[in-house]
Simulated assay, not measured.
Amino acid sequence: MSTVDSDMVRNPSAERGDKAPPLSEQAFRILRHQILRGEIAPGEKLRIEVLQKEYSFSSSPLREALNRLVAEGLVTADDHRGFRAAAMSQSDLQDITNFRLVAEPAAFAQSIAAGTDEWEGRVVAAHHQLERIEEKIAREEAHWNEEWTLRHKGFHMALVSAAGSVRLIATCSSLFDQAERYRRFSARNRIKPRNTQDEHRRLMEAAIGRQAELAVALLKEHLTLTTRNVIDLQRGDG
């Protein structure tokens, strides 16, 4: 990661003059960002002494950050082998997808049932922001552009934001992040065309139209397409 990128992840609100977050939070953000971007390779050894030299953190905040990443499923820990970036595999992706297919449709359906006009406004606004950046960025570049990535997650989280369960929403957020490495792999290597803009638009329309059954079906299909694409690529059918 470049110095500029590292500084942005360490303290994204620095320009506003806000107080810098604790060192463990800074380390967590940097490592998490690099893992999700693929800058830290799946299975790569994360040696404390190496990370200390690279990021100028002491061992204590680094260990705290790594343990948080273990809890998120992005890092694995072993008493004898230390920390490693979590490996990527078909079985892991399928496991993530299976849990997403339980959590996100449930949260989406609850949001449609309980969401107010304010929730509808959040969904429409998040979709508009996603569409706007897609207008500015070439289709083949959008899916690994950092701003697109943030807005993409923002849209998905807006869909479930009226679920009424903090834990359920947090679970959706965590699973979304765990799937991000696979989404990037799928987007970079996709051969079969996919119109994600249309998929997102249809999700938004079903949400504000309060068409719960259609919305849930669209979301499930949306979530499984990436999994299918990754599996096809591994089989050589991409």
Rank of each mutant, 00 (worst) to 15 (best):
F155G: 03
D177K: 09
S59H: 07
D232W: 13
Q178L: 07
E180W: 14
E141T: 01
L225K: 15
R132N: 10
I112L: 14
V216S: 07
E205M: 10
R81L: 14
E44Y: 04
G164M: 08
A109L: 10
L150W: 04
F57L: 13
H128W: 10
A207N: 01
H80R: 11
A109E: 14
F155M: 12
N145R: 04
T97S: 06
D232N: 12
F99I: 02
R235T: 01
S174G: 07
N98K: 11
M88R: 12
E146T: 09
V4F: 14
W148V: 01
Q197D: 08
R151W: 02
R167M: 11
R37Y: 01
K153T: 02
S91E: 11
N11K: 10
I40R: 08
G154C: 06
G121Y: 13
S24G: 05
L223Q: 13
A138S: 06
N67Y: 05
T171P: 01
E64I: 08
L223W: 05
M157A: 09
D92W: 05
Q52I: 15
G73W: 09
N189T: 03
A212V: 12
A14K: 09
K53W: 06
H152I: 01
A207L: 03
L31I: 09
Q129R: 15
A138D: 05
L150S: 07
T97G: 00
L219P: 00
L51C: 11
S111H: 13
V75F: 12
G236K: 13
Y55D: 06
Q129F: 12
R84C: 12
I35S: 02
I137E: 04
I137T: 10
A107W: 06
T76G: 00
Q94V: 03
P193L: 12
F57H: 09
G73N: 04
V124Q: 15
S2E: 09
R63H: 03
A215M: 08
T224A: 15
G164E: 01
E146Q: 11
E141G: 01
E15G: 03
P105M: 08
F176Y: 15
A187K: 05
V160G: 03
D232K: 11
R132W: 11
R47M: 12
